[in-house]
Nucleic acid binder design. Structure first.
Length: 721
DNA sequence: CAAGTTTACCTTTTT
DNA sequence: GGTAAACTTG
């Protein structure tokens, strides 16, 4: 396959794959075969230039992109690909820190704090300092601290200047908290590695020796620290960066577009290659994307040209309100599905996560299989964090946040007052939290029994080798399913139990995928990834996601929704003058579509509590979809009378639906089993019902058995006990 | 002092 | 329409 490159690739792609320049800048427009170029180049380096796979580092921004690259390379070069270093900036840096962090006093017992927990810490500090959280919201502090940690000042051990009230003080306390709980945050993963590289050149040299060839995806999204990291290990080595200034959508996270604009000044022997031939979409779609992005001033400038002779369809509809918008979309989807019964590839895109709700409701009602991607990350769900908190305390006995959480869930007669005292004892005496529970003398006689049980749990965990057993044991020991049933209604309890089961599967998958895994690696992975299961098969599933999450993906049919002023472009952004980034976001959204692109807006929308009207998005005018003087319906689209949708009978949706029935729709009958029921089986013995599957003809139940763990069983074989 | 109940606040976008 | 902090009760 590498022998036929001239045929398989266009001229620019070919040049990019075989170039011998030490530094290579590839400007790759949307859909121009960027991933193909990177993977082929890696394969080419190995096969033709005899580069050892272990000397190649490929960096991506998302886990999705990393795993995609891994699998593509596996199909290109087979098992050779396993020696490649492929990962996100964060996972690569965390690995470096785990291996060599002791050079800067970060030993491998440090755990990663997640965003929610950071907020908890900041809120507490702000309260302690008596800062008015109305005028100075905690999020602001988080943002400034994060911003500061992405500067060289932090790398050089300095402190932030007082941008907002008492920022330096808040920062100090935040760092203290992190240190005493042995935490690093997301920014530390990168900054501390850079700090280490400056402090100890021998460590840096070690990695310069390993990473002889560096390839970076989405280079336009790199921030100062990331580009510093790259230049440190990349100087004198070979570096190839791929990016598109028009798709830079992470400016709010510190991405510096200057990195890609100044690449030729930073590196030596630079060659620049531009890819503009688009293999994804019909020209019609590319035209309106080109139209929009041309309104941006701050860009290098390029125009996408379609290489495919696809007859693309574009349609714009404006509806009275958000409910009708979603009804319209679902109706369209139903006709599309009927047309392409064997295979369909549909995505609904929106500016912010909260917009997904309406679509979920309508899709559920219509019985169309769908999946919301990335809304709340799996590992941030309450039930998952509850169980993980025990594992975290087990692993890091200074983790006060998980300590507090695990002590309070389930309730054991120990509250914040007592816990505060124990934590204080731990921090003043440097004793770990579990020992402090015993030593501090804060536990009353009445509480002692429960505390003993709590401590016993951790002793018992010691005797278990696998992560899955530990999870099982925790769930059972604290009677978590009962806890869920007690506090949640049956539907949410069901969902939560499902998630616990998924957590268990994630542990199993993790233990199977890596050799010699330990709990710490598993816990790190929960901090670094947002979903539990690896890429599942989403064929014939309608995908719902934010535009940000859609970057790098492509779909046959795309619904770009909520095209209204204030929503998209977002009012937050345009106030800050970031309209250009919003426009790039729009460009990203439009270029996801291959054959069909639907644009929708609602004249009126319910935003938490209030109904408000907004005019259609300026982007529609920039695309050329709407004339600039009126808010008319689309010129390419067929106008639908809103009233015809108003009269639409929703009950008919559920009856005439096809075979794509969502299993989550199952309702609970009184004579069947429910979640958390105690059951027994002739062979497997006693167990607890984890979830119920009524999608098939007969009811199947996932049961956790004391003897053999999880099994899916026909409910007719089970008895109540 | 812990558990249960009500109110307030919320919203960009993500590793 | 969901969750976390504030408030009230036991």
């Amino acid at each position: 396959m590498l022998d036929n490159l001239e045929v398989e690739l266009n001229k620019e792609q070919y040049d990019a794959v075989v170039s011998k320049n030490r530094s290579l800048l590839i400007i790759a427009g949307a859909g121009t075969g960027k991933t193909r170029v990177i993977t082929y180049r890696i394969a080419y380096l190995i096969k033709k230039y005899d580069v050892r796979p272990g000397n190649i580092l490929a960096v991506t921004f998302t886990n999705k992109a990393a795993s995609e690259m891994k699998s593509r390379l596996y199909s290109l070069i087979g098992s050779l690909s396993t020696a490649l270093h492929i990962g996100t900036f964060h996972s690569i840096c965390l690995n470096i820190l785990r291996t060599d962090g002791h050079f800067i006093g970060v030993d491998d017992s440090y755990s990663v704090i997640d965003q929610d927990d950071r907020l908890v810490i900041i809120k507490r500090i702000i309260k302690d300092l008596g800062i008015d959280d109305k005028r100075y919201p905690p999020r602001k502090y988080l943002h400034y601290i994060s911003e500061f940690k992405n500067t060289m000042s932090y790398v050089n051990y300095q402190k932030p200047s007082e941008t907002i009230l008492k920022l330096a003080l808040v920062y100090d306390r935040y760092q203290e908290q992190l240190n005493s709980s042995r935490f690093i945050d997301f920014d530390d993963m990168l900054s501390l590695v850079v700090r280490m590289f400056y402090k100890d050149s021998s460590v840096l040299e070690k990695y310069q020796e390993i990473y002889k060839h560096i390839l970076v995806d989405e280079y336009q999204d790199t921030n100062k620290i990331q580009s510093t990291f790259l230049s440190l290990i990349g100087k004198g080595n070979n570096i190839c960066v791929v990016g598109d200034d028009d798709q830079s959508i992470y400016g709010w996270r510190g991405a510096e577009i200057a990195n890609i604009l100044n690449f030729d000044k930073e590196y030596e022997d630079v060659k620049e290659i531009k890819l503009v031939e688009n293999y994804r979409a019909g020209q019609k779609i590319l035209d309106i994307a080109n139209n929009v992005i041309e309104y941006n001033i701050n860009r290098r400038g390029k125009k996408l040209v379609s290489a495919k002779d696809i007859d693309a369809e574009i349609r714009y509809e404006t509806l009275s309100n958000e409910a009708l918008e979603s009804n319209f979309i679902i109706e369209e989807i139903k006709t599309l599905i009927l047309k392409d019964t064997d295979y369909f590839d549909i995505a609904i895109l929106y500016r912010k996560n909260s917009q997904s709700r309406n679509f979920e409701i309508s899709l559920n009602r219509a019985g169309i299989k769908h999946k919301v991607i990335g809304a709340i990350s799996f590992y941030q769900r309450k039930e998952v964090k509850d169980i993980l908190s025990y594992l975290r305390v087990y692993e890091n006995r200074f983790d006060i946040l998980s300590f507090r959480r695990s002590l309070k869930i389930p309730t054991r007669g120990i509250g914040d007052g007592t816990i505060d005292k124990v934590i204080l004892y731990s921090q003043t005496n440097g004793v770990d939290l579990l020992h402090s529970l015993v030593d501090s003398g804060c536990i009353s006689k009445r509480q002692q029994v429960e505390i003993d049980k709590y401590l016993q749990l951790f002793i018992k965990l010691d005797s278990m080798v696998s992560i899955r057993d530990k999870i099982n044991y925790i769930v059972e020991n604290i009677d978590y399913l009962l806890y869920l049933r007690q506090y949640d209604d049956i539907d949410t309890a069901n969902k939560r139990v499902d998630n616990i089961a998924e957590l268990y599967s994630a542990a199993v998958a993790f233990e199977e995928s890596v050799e010699g895994v330990n709990l710490r690696d598993f816990l790190s992975s929960t901090s670094l990834t947002s979903s539990a299961t690896e890429e599942q098969d989403l064929t014939n599933t309608v995908k719902l996601m934010t535009i940000h999450a859609s970057k790098g993906l492509e779909f046959d049919t795309v619904f770009l929704t909520g095209l209204e002023e204030g929503l998209f472009p977002s009012s937050q952004s345009s106030d800050d003058g970031d309209i250009e980034e919003e426009r790039r976001l729009c460009y990203v959204a439009l270029t996801r579509a291959k054959r069909r692109l639907y644009l929708t807006s609602a004249r009126e929308r319910l935003t938490y509590g209030k109904r408000s009207r907004s005019p259609s998005s300026i982007f529609l005018r920039e695309m050329g979809m709407v004339s600039s003087n009126t808010k008319s319906s689309g010129m390419l689209g067929r106008s639908i009378l809103d009233s015809s949708i108003d009269k639409f009978d929703v009950s008919s949706l559920s009856t005439n639906s096809n075979s794509y029935i969502s299993s989550s729709l199952s309702k609970l009958d009184s004579d069947s089993f429910s979640v958390a029921d105690k059951v027994s089986h002739a062979v497997f013995g006693d167990g607890v019902v984890l979830s119920i599957d009524r999608s098939g003809e007969s009811e199947k139940v996932v049961v956790h058995f004391k003897s053999t763990g999880q099994k899916k069983i026909l409910s007719s074989f089970l008895n109540r006990r």
